[in-house]
């Protein structure tokens, strides 16, 4: 307990950055993943191909490589400067979006084809059919896998510690510099992650599952 209280500043600023990384990355991954899922079911072959290539290329690349690219490779391209936090958000979002897209695509496949046929039959365009009829129903069945993706994202944020963003995964290094005992420090970090998942994400998942439960 002393390790936590004595170093509360370290823990607070670490988990604050974890929170920032998580919230922004989850937000952008959800938006990008939804768009990519839409591309992958689009009637236009070029859109489908672009979506498929993106998902397969990024999903099959280790997250560390993606973050390393933004921390080490990107600055040498002569493009506008990104600070580490922003670069980490971009990397995590691009990576997580591929998983979000696959979860949503599996949800789209659970919506019967009759739903989109009926939508097209009254004159809705592809975009309207997707956004008004298919996606709202698809989201309901992908709440559990989507939350698995977000829980993985929360833990993946610690990878950013290796690339200059001081978040929860970097607490150990700071404690080590301060000469604090490491094992209790690490256990506290692990415990706080458990609390974040069980205390925030899991109840949110349960709430959404209940709210969106449909009579079929």
């Amino acid at each position: 307990m002393n390790v936590l209280i004595d170093n509360r500043e370290v823990f607070l600023s670490g988990f604050k950055n974890t929170g920032i990384l998580f919230v922004f990355s989850a937000f952008f991954a959800l938006i990008l993943g939804t768009i990519v899922a839409g591309m992958r079911v689009s009637p236009a072959p070029a859109m489908r191909a672009a979506g498929t290539i993106y998902v397969n290329a990024v999903r099959n690349t280790p997250l560390t490589l993606i973050l390393a690219f933004f921390a080490l490779g990107y600055p040498r391209l002569g493009l506008p400067h990104l600070d580490y936090m922003f670069a980490a958000i971009v990397g995590l979002s691009l990576y997580t979006a591929t998983y979000v897209s696959e979860a949503i695509r599996s949800g789209i496949n659970t919506v019967s084809v009759g739903q989109s046929e009926a939508a097209r039959a009254i004159g809705l365009t592809f975009m309207q059919t997707l956004s008004l009829i298919v996606l709202p129903q698809a989201f309901r069945s992908v709440v559990p896998p989507l939350f698995s993706v977000f829980i993985a994202l929360l833990k993946n944020t610690t990878v950013a510690a290796g690339f200059g963003v001081v978040e929860a995964g970097g607490i150990r290094a700071t404690l080590s510099d301060l000469g604090e005992p490491l094992l209790p420090g690490l256990l506290w970090v692990a415990l706080i992650f458990v609390v974040l998942v069980l205390g925030i994400l899991t109840p949110l998942q349960r709430y959404l599952e209940k709210k969106w439960r449909v009579a079929r």
């Binding site: 019967s112 739903q115 009926a118 939508a119 039959a121 009254i122 009829i133 449909v214």
Partner: peptide, 16 residues
């Protein structure tokens, strides 16, 4: 399609 009404065997009302 907006000018051509269609009624399906399985109704296909928007479930949500």
């Amino acid at each position: 399609r907006a000018d051509v009404g269609m009624v399906f065997q399985s109704f296909n009302l928007f479930a949500h």
